[in-house]
């Protein structure tokens, strides 16, 4: 098992070396599941759903990629694949617009590493806008 894993990691390193962006070195245990698709439950609320055609819940599967998906990449993916209008009301720079709360598996993302959080299969991500009237 161990030599096999090493061989696999070597191949991985060769592949990543050719990519322009530097890759993070994750624990090897994580990498075993690396190629498996990540299915997520996304939820938009507090008015944020208005930017997604009024649809609050989305079940999505992120495409396979070499390194694990993180929140930063998820935001880009959402912007390109789900967001229907006025992207500036949802993302600002590479993060969410201030005033939008993010929960990862029902915990404040500020406790989970925010943009660096590595997404796991079946994660539940909630975006709640606080910018709508009270």
């Amino acid at each position: 098992m161990v030599p096999l894993l090493c061989l696999w990691l070597v191949t991985l390193n060769e592949k990543t070396a050719s990519l322009p962006v530097p890759m993070r070195n994750s624990a090897s245990d994580d990498n075993i599941n690396m190629a498996a698709p990540v299915a997520l439950h996304l939820e938009f609320g507090g008015g944020a759903e208005l930017l997604f055609d009024g649809v609050k819940e989305h079940h999505v599967t992120l495409p396979d990629q070499l390194d694990p998906w993180d929140m930063k990449q998820l935001l880009v993916w959402i912007k390109e694949n789900l967001l229907k209008e006025r992207p500036e009301l949802f993302v600002q720079g590479d993060t969410v617009r201030p005033g939008i709360l993010v929960l990862i598996n029902d915990a404040d993302w500020e406790l989970m590493g925010e943009l660096q959080y590595e997404l796991q299969d079946k994660d539940n991500i909630v975006f709640i806008s606080t910018l709508h009237g009270g």
Partner: peptide, 11 residues
Amino acid sequence: YFKKLDYFSTE
């Protein structure tokens, strides 16, 4: 959110 209170949030 955590208390699951029922509120309305349209602009």
